[in-house]
């Protein structure tokens, strides 16, 4: 298994307020798969994504990527791990306001020894005409495309998307999902998408449903649907 999650426990709070948000998660994702983590608010899906992304720690259990365990890493190593293996996309795009689209993508490229060609990527994500604009001159969808460009330009092994369509309308959301699918197909990255939109599971290779910090359902999607055909 490329990404292996083993007996993952996570607690928040102390004393009487101590709350277990992940209750021994065990699962895995194969290289190049699109995996959708589904679940309602508070189910633990974002926490799980953050632990995979190395920006949060597990209290028990571990994550292993290609045999490398994040639990053994100090802060510096974790930074290198994120730099080398991961790309992040958030619900809110978190772009640098005084850098242009192209420059925001360069911020991601800087982290890689072997980044993708930025101009080509700008065309792939449909932002070539907007490359010299600042984020505040873009629509929400264009900003999210930029964020995806920034994450993907370093050609990460795993692309982590936390509610990537949460702030977008239907059509724009579909455009973004299509882009994620294109990126997955073109560059072969493993993609993990956290969402509460049930329809998105149809474009996934693997679906993991969480509720109350535990996996309720985990399956391989045999009837994968192109993102363009999703409907909700």
């Amino acid at each position: 298994m490329y990404l292996e999650i083993n007996n993952l426990h996570k607690f928040y709070g102390e004393g009487d307020n101590r709350n277990e948000v992940l209750k021994g998660i065990n699962c895995g994702v194969e290289k190049g798969q699109i995996c959708v983590l589904l679940g309602p608010s508070g189910s633990g899906k974002s926490t799980m994504l953050n632990i995979i992304g190395g920006i949060d720690n597990a209290d028990e259990g571990y994550i292993s990527i290609n045999g490398e365990k994040t639990v053994d890493m100090n802060e510096k190593k974790l930074s290198l791990y994120r730099r080398k293996h991961l790309g992040y996309v958030f619900q809110f795009y978190n772009l640098i306001p005084n850098l242009t689209v192209k420059e925001n993508i360069e911020v991601g490229a800087y982290l890689s020894d072997n980044p993708l060609d930025i101009d080509e990527l700008l065309k792939t994500i449909g932002l070539w005409e907007h490359k010299d604009k600042l984020p505040n001159q873009l629509s929400g969808g264009q900003q999210q495309r930029t964020a995806i460009g920034r994450a993907i330009v370093k050609n990460p092994d795993i692309l982590l998307c936390d509610e990537p369509t949460g702030a977008l309308d239907y059509n724009t959301s579909k455009d973004i999902l299509k882009l994620i699918e294109t990126v997955n197909q073109k560059f072969g990255n493993t993609v993990i998408i956290v969402t509460h939109n049930d329809a998105i599971k149809l474009m996934a290779d693997k679906v993991i449903k969480l509720r109350d910090g535990a996996i309720r359902k985990e399956y391989i999607n045999e009837t994968k649907v192109p993102a363009a055909e999703l409907d909700w």
């Binding site: 920006i55 510096k76 290198l80 994120r82 730099r83 991961l86 809110f92 978190n94 982290l111």
Partner: peptide, 15 residues
């Protein structure tokens, strides 16, 4: 700029 910083740190920028 905390969210941008968080994103950059999550992407691998070091402190």
């Amino acid at each position: 700029e905390s969210k941008v910083i968080g994103t950059l740190r999550a992407s691998g920028y070091t402190k």
